[in-house]
Simulated scan of single mutants.
Amino acid sequence: MTSTDPLTRLTEHGVSVWLDDLSRERLESGNLAELIRDFQVTGVTTNPTIFAGALASGAAYHDRIRSLAERGADVDSAVREITTSDVAEACDLFREVFDASEGVDGRVSIEVDPRLARDTEGTVAEAAELWKTVDRPNLLVKIPATEEGLPAITRTLASGISVNVTLIFSIQRYRQVIDAFMTGLEQARANGHDIASIASVASFFVSRVDSEIDKRLQGLGGDSTTALLGKAAIANARLAYAAYAEEFSGTRWAGLAGAGARPQRPLWASTGVKDPSYSDTRYVDELVVPGTVNTMPEGTLHAVADHAEISGDTVTGTAAQAQAVFDDLVAAGIDVDDVFATLEEEGVVKFEKSWIELLDTVRDQLDRAYDSERANG
């Protein structure tokens, strides 16, 4: 990569490039190391859907499944060992980036069991167990920003665990996430933790907002609604950044920053374009602003490297224009609150479904390994 490469320009403008994917095949083939070396990748995010896909199609897991079967592992412990070992290895691969960036980047995320999305106590316990099991300082434990997740975020941070808050859609919920983050740091400091070592990102989902709102606009019909297609997601993310800038410039944050705290960086998630009529790099080009993260599927990463137009900050100062988009959407008849509630519920359901598929896949592979062992025994 050269200084004229779009990914290099993106990082020069203060955006951290993370990969939204992880698998045993990526680790063993050297693909992830190559992306770190040649494509500016400084972190990885995972979710249940990613792991389900990796286990369903990856022959690289066969030896691990066979070993687990020989030890008599049940499906839950097998899934836990498979996912945490992949994440731990990825953490080790990113350790040099983590150290060089003084803990800003080099982060790898792992999500709590999505079946716990509405269970505060279960989420807190699972987050602590994942943190203990992976045992790497550059881990981020992903907790969804459901109503039940908010107190879990606070309590997890208060115990000194770094958190990736996921499934954020609305600005209202995002402000609650920021409050949960700051409360967690305040409690962590009171508990005697070094809050300078606690990291957090807030994962604001982007493309799904366009998918849902565009569908509703098309249902309404008319020229005025057609003009609003493809406007909501970028406007929503820009409003999120305005909220971030406001919340992290107040006296409450100043007190935490004075004690060494790092801000909770906005992370643009779901940045793969779902509508083929849109530019495949739009959720990168239009969301360039310092101090943020953009986590991309590999296809988007390569598209950005090939032809993204990175010309500078495209977010700062755009809040009024972004708000006008939402004013127009409401005037057109879009129930924005219902959109965000729908997206959150669909996100929870999708990840839970993927987790169940992951369990079923591993159960099937364990059964076949058990049968093979008995046949050869």
Rank of each mutant, 00 (worst) to 15 (best):
S3E: 15
T8G: 08
H13Q: 12
V15C: 11
S16E: 05
L19M: 12
D20K: 01
D20V: 02
D21Y: 06
S29R: 07
N31T: 15
E34F: 04
L35D: 03
D38C: 09
Q40M: 12
T42F: 00
V44M: 04
F51D: 00
G53K: 02
A54F: 03
G58Q: 10
I65H: 11
E70A: 15
V87G: 08
I110G: 00
P114K: 02
G122N: 01
A127I: 03
W131Q: 13
P137R: 09
P137E: 09
V141R: 02
K142C: 03
P144T: 08
P144I: 06
L150P: 01
T154D: 10
L157P: 09
A158V: 11
F169T: 11
Q176C: 10
A180C: 09
A180F: 06
N191M: 10
D194K: 07
A199Y: 11
A202R: 08
F204Q: 10
S207C: 02
S211G: 09
E212F: 02
L220K: 14
A232L: 06
A235M: 03
N236Q: 02
A240C: 15
Y241N: 10
E247G: 12
R252P: 13
A259W: 05
S270Y: 06
V273Q: 01
K274S: 01
Y283L: 05
E286G: 08
T292F: 01
N294Q: 06
L301Y: 08
V304W: 02
I310T: 03
G312I: 11
V315D: 00
G333T: 10
E345S: 13
E346R: 13
V348C: 01
S354F: 00
I356A: 00
A369F: 05
A369Y: 03
D371C: 09
